[in-house]
Design a protein around this nucleic acid. Structure first.
Lengths: 131, 131
DNA sequence: TAGGTACCTTACTTTTTTGTCTGTACTTGC
DNA sequence: GCAAGTACAGACAAAAAAGTAAGGTACCTA
């Protein structure tokens, strides 16, 4: 398994936390599993068609190893595997909420700033044509 | 400037937040600047000798562009540059606190689990030698 | 004139992460 | 027999992030 992960400096607990949730799709997956619990592999795939099967499995396995999700195999044909969040995963989801809040605010500010810059540029252009 | 950043999926605000704080040293830097505000370049370098100058500058510049830190240049000889966190950066630091908490707990759990496994392995080995 | 300090910049290499594609085992349906 | 569906595994390649090493400015001291 590809698991050599860049080691993050410890910054008072943030290192380990970011190591767990830092993957490109992990936060999204945790959130979706938390919503639609329990959740089958194919379901996740359908919910997020952008993510490749390989990354989906890789991330799910790492999250399982980190103890934030639980994987249950039903020995049926066709196979059936269900994912759910562990209590630890639920706590993480909770701890992530303020960060998500901040992210939303930051995004809004950024967009507003961009819009403002565009408006300023237009105004300047008008000024030039009128001057 | 190297800034093409892997695009993170949006997961309800977490995407933008992780884009801002996801760099290897960024959380640490934000935290340190917040502690020792205002903070000179050389100071940060001394506080964290592991990080290369290039990464230090690169991260500082990106954080400045994201509006979470402020950079002030004093035109002196030798040059003097001071970094401080913006209100937005301070909010981010706050939003990061629960995650850091979780990280610490997670780390403890992981270590305990590892210790437990080692103990179990020893016990099993004894069992074998004694049996 | 060489060496030192502070704050970078640039070119280049390595490491890590992500993506693409192909293949597996098994069964149902046509 | 062949396709389709489920839940993966593995080789390989591309992209992104991080690191290394060298240089550059501007002034000051020995």
């Amino acid at each position: 398994m590809e698991k050599k992960q860049r080691k993050l400096p410890d910054s008072c607990g943030l290192g380990p936390a970011l190591a767990v949730i830092g993957g490109k799709w992990k936060a999204l997956l945790l959130w979706q599993i938390h919503q639609a619990q329990p959740c089958r592999f194919g379901e996740l795939k359908r919910l997020q068609p952008e993510i490749s099967e390989k990354m989906l499995i890789q991330h799910l396995r790492e999250m399982e190893a980190d103890g934030i999700i639980h994987r249950e195999v039903f020995h049926q044909v066709p196979p059936r595997v269900e994912y759910s969040v562990t209590p630890e995963g639920a706590e993480l989801d909770l701890a992530l909420a303020p960060l998500a809040e901040w992210g939303k605010k930051h995004q809004e500010r950024t967009e507003k700033a961009k819009a403002g810059a565009a408006r300023a540029a237009r105004t300047a252009a008008e000024g030039v044509t009128l001057g």
